[in-house]
Every structure is written in structure tokens, then in C-alpha cells.
């Protein structure tokens, strides 16, 4: 009897585990994770393998130049009050020298390693804490089939480090009385992020320098052309 009960429990556990595994996360197909691109436009392509609603945002990564200054005062009742004197200043993170490995380190978000030493990028600079500024979106997209894609080209982007953030939306959060409806009124089940560094497109170089068409053995080429002409 006890053995049967254990078997039954095991089956129930397996079924429960199965339903958990069924939940499929969206995949950011493009831009590739931790990739580096030349140019000012990117293709955002998100693959969805179940019926779900997603919210897609393109966020530019900024670094802090000057920290915010706060002033603390004590009122007559003896309560401390903090007031911002000057706001923090940010500038776009310079991605011109980033490699794919650097983007991966920045995506991990860790500034120090296990020993407490600062993590460094390939150019020797330390990994910094970055802040986001939304440049495109958020856009909500509802996938009504078992397999679907959200695709959009984002153009006229400036060079920098960008994050494609995909939030899987759940139930609508009920608004309290007196509160205004906002874009964030959905429960976010899961967030997927993909980092991409965008660099300025290098100037086009003439054929001799761009290395695409290397000079081939001209004698062999001549022979090939001759044979083609003879047997055509």
C-alpha cells in the first residue's frame, strides 16, 4: 500500500514538473546575445513558442558622470528630511572599443569578482554600473499562435551599448480607486534581456584594401576562362 502511494505521488510530482517545464521563455533571435554591430540600425526579432503577450523595449545604457547631491535637514519636530540639491548626470556608455567578450561581462552586471577585485574589460577599464534610458518602446505584442515572431527594425540609433528587454506579461493588475492607468499595469512573469554594442560604420574602403576579393592566381583564372570559352 505504501509502495503504491509513493508511486502515485511520484506520478503526480512528474505531472506537476511537466507543467512547469511547459512554460517557454521568449527568445531574442536578433540581435544575437552580446553581439557587436556596425551601423545605426538593428533588427529586433523575438521568437515566441506559445500564446503570450510580450512588452519589448530598447534601452540605451548610460554611465553616471556626476552623482546626485542630497541635502539633509532637520525640521522643528526633529525629523530628518532629505532633499535632492542637484540631480545625477549621465552620458551614453562608450561602446566604440567593446568586443563581444566585453559585452558579455557588462551583461553579467557584476563589477567585482569572487575575490573582490574589479572586473576589467579588454581595454583595461573596469566594469561599471550602468543605467538605462528607453529609446524605443515599450511596445506590447500579442502572439495568438503556438509559434510567432515579433520583428521590428529600429533605425537612426547612435553608437552605444543597448539592451533589448522583453517582458512576458501576465494578468492585469487591478487598479486601486483614484489611481490612473499606467503602462506598467500588467504583472511581469519573466524578463529576457539581450545586450548589443552598436559601433559607427567604418568608411568604405576600395577593393584593394577591404580584403574581400583577394587577388587570385591569374594564370589559373586565365586557364579557367579559356576552358569555359572552348567548351561552351
Amino acid at each position: 500500500m505504501k509502495k503504491r502511494l509513493i508511486q502515485l505521488l511520484a506520478i503526480i510530482m512528474l505531472l506537476a514538473l511537466g507543467t512547469c517545464v511547459c512554460f517557454a521563455s521568449p527568445t531574442v533571435v536578433s540581435p544575437g546575445a552580446n553581439s557587436v554591430h556596425d551601423g545605426d540600425s538593428i533588427l529586433v526579432s523575438v521568437k515566441l513558442t506559445e500564446k503570450q503577450t510580450i512588452r519589448v523595449s530598447v534601452i540605451r545604457q548610460m554611465e553616471e558622470v556626476k552623482a546626485a547631491v542630497y541635502e539633509t535637514t532637520v525640521d522643528e519636530a526633529g525629523n530628518e528630511q532629505t532633499k535632492e540639491v542637484s540631480p545625477a548626470e549621465y552620458k551614453p556608455y562608450d561602446a566604440s572599443k567593446l568586443t563581444e567578450a566585453d559585452v558579455a561581462l557588462l551583461a553579467a552586471g557584476e563589477t567585482k569578482d569572487a575575490k573582490g577585485n574589479p572586473i576589467k574589460l579588454s581595454n583595461g577599464s573596469a566594469v561599471k554600473t550602468l543605467y538605462g534610458e528607453t529609446v524605443s518602446g515599450p511596445v506590447d505584442y500579442k502572439n495568438a499562435s503556438d509559434l510567432g515572431f515579433y520583428t521590428k527594425q529600429i533605425s537612426s540609433l547612435k553608437p552605444g551599448l543597448y539592451v533589448i528587454q522583453v517582458d512576458v506579461l501576465g494578468k492585469k493588475i487591478e487598479q486601486k480607486e483614484g489611481e490612473e492607468a499606467s503602462e506598467g499595469d500588467y504583472e511581469i512573469i519573466e524578463s529576457v534581456k539581450s545586450y548589443v554594442a552598436l559601433k559607427e560604420k567604418p568608411k568604405e574602403t576600395p577593393v584593394a584594401d577591404n580584403g574581400i576579393f583577394s587577388t587570385r592566381n591569374t594564370a589559373l583564372q586565365f586557364l579557367q576562362n579559356l576552358l569555359r570559352s572552348l567548351f561552351r
Binding site: T27, V29, S30, S45, F149, T151
Partner: peptide, 21 residues
């Protein structure tokens, strides 16, 4: 119309062009 390579859009090894929206 805008177009990208199918492997960028669909994530599979096909480098033909597919139109976007």
C-alpha cells in the same frame, strides 16, 4: 519595404532575404 536576412529574423541558417513589416 525593409528586409533582412532570414537567419537574422528567424534564427536559422538561411541567408535569403525576407521582407519585414
Amino acid at each position: 519595404a525593409l528586409a533582412w536576412r532570414a537567419d537574422s529574423m528567424l534564427g536559422l541558417g538561411n541567408d535569403e532575404l525576407l521582407p519585414l513589416a
